[in-house]
Design a protein around this nucleic acid. Sequence first.
DNA 1: GCGATAAGGTACCATTCCAGTCCTATTTAG
DNA 2: CTAAATAGGACTGGAATGGTACCTTATCGC
Lengths: 159, 159
Amino acid sequence: MFRLNRLTDYATVVMTLMAEEPSRLRGASEIAEITRLEQPTVAKLLKLLGKAGLLSSVRGARGGYRLLRSPEQISVGDIIAAIDGPFAMTECGVHGGHCHHESHCQVRGNWRKIGLAIESALRSVTLLDMVAPGPGWTPKITVERPRALPATLQVECEA
Amino acid sequence: MFRLNRLTDYATVVMTLMAEEPSRLRGASEIAEITRLEQPTVAKLLKLLGKAGLLSSVRGARGGYRLLRSPEQISVGDIIAAIDGPFAMTECGVHGGHCHHESHCQVRGNWRKIGLAIESALRSVTLLDMVAPGPGWTPKITVERPRALPATLQVECEA
DNA sequence: GCGATAAGGTACCATTCCAGTCCTATTTAG
DNA sequence: CTAAATAGGACTGGAATGGTACCTTATCGC
């Protein structure tokens, strides 16, 4: 599937909640109660989001987290990157050059481009959009593509 | 990560190869040899792609597979759907209504919309594009979004 | 100052999912 | 009839996920 993993999904819920009152300091327990998620899970998410620079934390009693930037300056892409790590459509090269046709592999290059396009699209959807998208909001994602040329390419990419 | 799983990745390589000579019947072993993938893995992919209606199969000795439609009529989205199943950004509702705030959960609704937008974008990239994208090809994905309204929404969505 | 509270960090376990293998039909060429 | 190739399962090892526990560090209120 082209599926968001669960933690990332939760993270967007948590961040959307935070965006409702950006200046308010909230603790993990409070957030867990409102979102009905497990407290340890929320704590884990908050740590990750803090580490990624999306939240600032206040330690000690009556501590908590708040948004480090305003909702319109935090994107869905930021949240995904914070939880899931960097975008990468394919695993090409993960196993250290196991694929010795990489430089000639058009398919991988295309995936990379498509991935970058999706990433930039997700980076353009902000928390403010998530909180209050407006009644008729629909993200319109379009792929612009020139006329393709006749096929002559040899594909020999392994792994 | 927002990562394609490996089988789907392989499937695009296989399908791109098939697109080079759409009318030619190819067996799993031949494809495995060219792509350097394991033969059983290729066989599995071909079965799935056939089941999804992207390839037609000819059984028996000298049998094989060929594209059922022309390369420009088969999209990357088709391939992903064939291997990974239907698009679904979130798992909301997978565990049968465990989330009793679904109807009020703006976040999930937004994810669904974003997912649909990405899906339609992927459906607009065809095998022909993958085979011969042209030298300067870059998919340009844009999300159109109106001015968001002030935040007042209550988020209470679990799981 | 002290205890309570809450974040920071690390490590661990259980489960799920994925990728790959294997086995047994079924079909067709020769 | 036999060999070759797809069809369609079932099964398994391993990796990744996601949830938990434990301890440390920092701050607040008394």
